[in-house]
């Protein structure tokens, strides 16, 4: 059986849940649902995006079931429209140098702290390489929203990473 996309789904589930057993459950359920709902799949449309959409629903249902963090942060999303913040960061900013010093665990930690709408935009685009259109399909929002979440998500992530770098003492405090 061709379980293509499995690594990508598993990897994303891991980024969303930060738990291997949970990620495995979610991915398994995703494939079962895909199997049961195959008649709803439009042949010729994007299979990868379809599987990611199912997985996102499985994941959100679980969160709701556990009464945990659900897709909010819409206030942050609105705020994103008035910040093209990353573009305003000047040159020669010490942020630039922290790239060399980011520790593996830092990115996990920073991603985990991102509100879900931004986290999923960044994970799907930057870590999984989905196109804007695919991400829009998966999260069910317009491409413009994907773009603003991505820009905001990246800048939040960057800020968190630069904070960690300062904590590690790699980057000197400015201001």
């Amino acid at each position: 059986m061709a379980v293509v996309h499995l690594d990508a789904l598993y990897h994303t589930a891991l980024r969303l849940t930060h738990s291997r057993p949970e990620a495995e459950d979610i991915v398994q359920e995703t494939y079962l649902r895909a199997f049961r709902n195959f008649h709803r799949f439009n042949v010729g449309t994007n299979c990868r995006a379809w599987l990611f959409t199912i997985m996102r629903n499985v994941f959100l249902n679980r969160l709701r079931g556990q009464g945990r963090e659900v897709l909010q942060g819409e206030a942050d999303v609105r705020e994103a429209s008035d910040t093209s913040s990353s573009a305003h960061v000047g040159l020669g900013n010490p942020e630039e140098e922290f790239f060399q010093t980011v520790l593996h665990g830092d990115i996990d930690r920073a991603l985990k702290a991102l509100p879900l709408p931004f986290r999923e935009a960044v994970v799907l685009t930057d870590l999984e390489g989905l196109s804007y259109r695919e991400v829009a399909e998966v999260v069910g929002c317009p491409i413009g929203t994907v773009m603003s979440r991505l820009s905001r998500g990246r800048s939040l992530l960057r800020r968190a990473l630069s904070r960690f770098a300062r904590e590690h003492g790699y980057v000197k405090e400015v201001e």
């Binding site: 059986m1 499995l6 598993y10 891991l14 398994q28 494939y31 079962l32 199997f35 990115i107």
Partner: peptide
């Protein structure tokens, strides 16, 4: 560079048991 940094993150492959488990469950369901 920031994107490359994110892309360079180690990617954990799906465990072989998960793959086998999915195949088994889908077959059982069929």
């Amino acid at each position: 560079e920031f994107r490359q940094l994110l892309r360079r993150q180690p990617r954990e492959a799906a465990p072989a048991e998960l793959r086998a488990g999915i195949v088994r469950r889908v077959r059982r369901e069929a």
